[in-house]
Each structure stands twice: as C-alpha cells, then as structure tokens.
Computed example of a mutant assay.
Amino acid sequence: MANTTAVLLAAGAGTRLGHGPKALLPFRGGTLVEHAAAVLRDGGCSDVIVVVGAGAAEVAALQQPGSALAGCRLVRNDDWASGMGGSFHLGVASMRAGHNVLVALVDQPGVSPALVARLIAAHRPGRITAAGYRGAAGGLHRGHPIIFDPLLAVQAAAISNGDVGARDFLRSHPELIDLVDCGDLFDGADLDTESDLHLLGGPAASGAPGA
C-alpha cells in the first residue's frame, strides 16, 4: 500500500465566519489546525503538509516541540485570498513522490482518525476516494476528505484555480471516484457562518484508526 500524504488546507481568513482565520480558532485546549493535524497523523497519514496563508505567522509559532504541528511541513500561500485552488496546487507540488494525497479542510472538526483510516484502507491505485455523507434525500453525496492517486492529484492540481480547487476535475471524472460511506462517523459539516460555531463545542470527534 502506498504511503499517504495529507494536504491540510488552512490558508483562509475566515471572512464569512467573522472570527479570524479558522486555523486559529480555539478547539479542545488548542486550535483547529493543531487538532486537524493530529487527526490526520493518527488516522494513518505518513506526512502532513499544512498550507497556510492568513495567520501564517501565528500558525508557524504553534510549531513547537510536542505540538501536534511538530513534524508537519508548513507551506505558505501568499496568494491565499484568491481561494483554495492555489493552496491545493501548492500542497500537491510539495508532496513526496509516489504518495497518495489526502486533501482535508481545517474547518471540519468532526473528522476523526477513524474516518481518515477508513478512507486510506478503501483507496485503490489509480482512483479517487472520497468521504460520502447522506443528505436529506438519503443518497450519498461527496465530501471531504478526498484521497487522490499521485498522478490524478497532479492532474487535478494543474487545472485548479480560484476557489474551485479540485472541483472541476472531480466533476469531469466521476468514473474515477469511489464514495465511501462515512455517515456513521460524521455528517460532513464545516464551519462557514456564525450559525456553525456550535461545531466547536459539540461532542468529541473520537475514534481510533480502524474503528
């Protein structure tokens, strides 16, 4: 099984939410970016790349010995205001050769190590593996995290721009995507607006790898 590099997209300013960069929001005695990095590592990612932008200096200051960010590679996106496309591109460009790429968002505190481990275990060479969540109609819809085969990650990053990220590539190649039902572990919610702040104080997103 190929190793998996996590690309954690954590560059935004959190303008819609209105509480500063989401990466620096307090969560369980630390910050969201520290929590997300720990989840990715505990879930089985061998390498964690954190793409930072707004609040980059503050995130870098958290990278102390013993911190969840210790050992992570920080990649700075100076053009973070243009959207996540640039961050996705920089993250993929920084990955280790031959590694699968798991793309995660810093504003999903409900993602657990068990969810990450499930996706890694389900991933097949030459494919894209995405977490699936059940909507009101009952069917699975694609969400994050998403794992890309190395070559597919490069291809997706090559056409990413603005706030689109890999969306256009994914829409153009549905035949490459395997949806993995993760609805028993998480509902796919992220922190976008003030009404989502309850996600920072909800039940622990627990789960050991493989649970």
Rank of each mutant, 00 (worst) to 15 (best):
A13D: 15
F148I: 11
D190S: 14
L69N: 07
I177P: 02
V50T: 09
Q63E: 12
V33T: 09
L179N: 01
R118D: 07
L90S: 03
R76W: 08
H99K: 11
P174G: 03
A166S: 12
A23Y: 00
G20H: 06
L69Q: 05
F169I: 01
D178V: 08
L40S: 05
L191Y: 09
D178N: 13
H19F: 12
G12E: 11
G98I: 06
P203R: 15
A2K: 10
A131K: 11
A6T: 04
L152T: 09
G135M: 04
A2L: 12
H173A: 08
V75C: 09
L8A: 10
V75K: 11
A61V: 09
S87Y: 08
V33Q: 02
L199I: 00
C182F: 01
P209F: 11
S82P: 03
G165Y: 09
A23Q: 08
S160D: 10
D78N: 10
A121R: 11
Q63W: 02
M1T: 09
L9N: 04
S112P: 04
H99T: 14
V103S: 06
A205Q: 05
A153T: 01
V111P: 03
G162D: 03
D42W: 02
E194I: 10
H173F: 12
V7D: 04
D190Q: 05
A117C: 10
L197Y: 02
C72D: 06
H123I: 06
S112M: 06
Q108D: 03
A11M: 14
R167Y: 02
L105R: 05
I49P: 02
H123K: 09
V164L: 08
G138Q: 06
D79T: 14
S46G: 14
G20S: 07
E175R: 12
A208Y: 15
N161S: 15
D192C: 05
G30D: 08
G20E: 13
V50C: 05
G135W: 01
G207P: 06
G202I: 03
S112A: 15
S82G: 04
H173W: 06
A137Q: 14
G55A: 06
H89Q: 15
G53Q: 04
V59K: 07
S87H: 08
L185W: 00
R134I: 06
R28Q: 10
L200F: 09
Q63P: 00
A204N: 03
T31K: 13
A121I: 00
C45W: 13
